[in-house]
Amino acid sequence: MTYIIAVANQKGGVGKTTTSINLAASLAATKRRVLLVDLDAQGNATMGVGVDKSAVKLTARDVLLEKAKPADVILHLPEIGISLMPANGDMTEAEIKLRDVAVGDFALKAALAEVADQFDYILLDCPPALSKLTVNALVAADGVLIPMQCEYYALEGLTALMDTIGKIKRVINPKLEVEGLLRTMFDPRNNLANDVSAQLLEHFKEKVYRTIIPRNVRLAEAPSHGLSVMAYDAQSSGAKAYLALAGEVLRRHDGGQLRLSA
């Protein structure tokens, strides 16, 4: 059974793309078939896995606007072990045009249904806004993974996202659940980070992943090489953290046997 996870937070710079890429690569390392869908016009997930966003002829835009079939857009990346539906600045056109389509909120859901049986996990890297593209992701998803920094404004932004998730669950996608909250770029020496982390655990309890993603130079460097941190430096603390996150995700869905590839 395919499980679709939207990686979403309307706040920028919280590690959505880093999480999308490295969770995808970590799941692939456990021999799961993984598709990463880039829904952001910035195309950072596309560039971060070594694909030149300016050179791709077809993107998620073409799929959403029914100009191309998903199978014609998806790229297979053996270096990282995942497949990718790329994005670039053309996604802005999809954002605008989907507003004028009666069933525009269901465009991604319909497209992914065509290829879902080819993958165990599909990760949706959402733009940093509660936009039409993010709504498409939430309508298509089974769960929402929310990366967040433990900082002053984190909880305020989280409230707006939770409200949106609740509305979509009630009106459009009753199966949608919060997959989990992921603490990213965490520095345990920071008192505020520890205070916010404690508040998250108090309010969301088991919805907060045990895994914490640390601040890590290798995580920051890997995208410039077009690699996941697993491929760039598998022994780094960032790589180990995302592999641990993959283990948590798997335990929630299929018993969690890692089955690491050689």
Rank of each mutant, 00 (worst) to 15 (best):
P127V: 06
S131N: 04
Y121L: 01
P70W: 04
D120V: 03
V37P: 01
P147C: 09
S131G: 09
L65W: 03
L130G: 04
L124N: 09
E79P: 05
D52L: 06
G50F: 06
S83Q: 03
A55L: 11
K53R: 14
V135I: 14
A55F: 02
N88L: 11
K67W: 03
R32C: 00
V135A: 03
V49M: 10
A94I: 06
Q42H: 11
P127C: 05
D105E: 15
R32Y: 03
A113T: 06
G48C: 10
D142I: 01
V56K: 04
A25E: 05
T134C: 08
A137K: 09
R33W: 04
E79W: 05
I122C: 00
Q42I: 05
A94F: 07
K57P: 05
A102Y: 14
L64Y: 01
D90R: 15
V103T: 15
R33A: 10
D142M: 06
I82W: 04
P127M: 08
L65C: 03
A87T: 11
A25T: 10
Q42S: 03
I80Y: 01
A94C: 07
D100S: 15
A71Y: 06
S54W: 13
L98G: 08
K69V: 10
D142C: 03
L98T: 11
G50E: 08
V101N: 08
I96N: 05
I21C: 11
A71S: 14
L123G: 07
L39Q: 08
L98N: 08
A24N: 04
S26N: 03
R61D: 09
C150L: 10
A110N: 15
N136A: 00
I82C: 10
I80S: 15
M91W: 07
L124D: 10
K57F: 07
I82Y: 02
K53W: 08
D90P: 04
D38F: 05
I146R: 11
I146S: 12
G89W: 07
R32V: 04
N136K: 08
D100P: 02
Q42L: 07
Y121W: 09
L112I: 08
G43T: 09
V49A: 08
D120N: 13
N136T: 04
A116E: 14
L35W: 01
A60G: 13
G81C: 11
